[in-house]
Amino acid sequence: MPIHEKSLIRPENLREQDELVIDGVDVSGHWSTFIETRAVTDYNEAMQDEIAALAGGENIHRCWQCGSCTNACTVHAVNPDFNPRYWIYLIRLGMEDELVRDKDIIWQCVSCNKCTDACPRDVVPEAVMKATAHWLELKGHVDKKPSTHFDEGFSAQVIETGKIEDGLVVRDFFKRMGDPFRPFKEPYLVAMITGIAKRAPIGYLLKMGLALVVRPRTRGWAPARKGIEEYIREVDAKDRKALGLPAEGGH
């Protein structure tokens, strides 16, 4: 079946056969390209409950598809493919394949919360976008995004010591991103480091140097750390259980 409007069809739905004869007719090759069905063939009934179980997704079932969120959306104004109303609909009906198709856009939410203000049903679409991004990560549909790596390193440091050491945050981030020497390759970072080294008072530099070797800690932090860790474990276990995932697993 020749197709003249291939640009209208998703590339993954185009099928060419190397050798195929049907009822004596050779339908191989480019001029007999087939199109896979684009019909939605089932609903994943667990999907709405899964998103609703994650922090922020609780009110998703209230949506009545008015589109106020998409109309209000900062990102939608720049990228029309960013469409919270549409994704909420897909989630509510369980059209998983359709949602996953947009996995590389969903995380672009800038959390301006204009949608939250506009929503007449208190769905809190911004929180739903977060829950959805989290769901995509937990389900393994997407790799951890840079901001998740950053958050994890940042949180780990706070949990561990009760303090933030800026240099360590930056170094830890690039280590988590798989390239510990990145700071020395990024001109803006090199400029920043040399700038500080040149201009900062000696006492401050000494303090920074010391912090590199001896990590400062909040006094009496251990009980807080224990409490936080326990809470994180609980939430994580609850989320993973709601999504039917094995209990182990990272943040």
């Binding site: 684009r38 019909a39 939605v40 598809q65 549409y86 609909y89 059209m95 359709e98």
Partner: peptide, 15 residues
């Protein structure tokens, strides 16, 4: 059940 989901603009064929 076959038809078109008019919000997703896609054909559906759901058991």
């Amino acid at each position: 059940v076959k038809g078109e989901d008019t919000l997703v603009k896609r054909p559906i064929s759901i058991p």
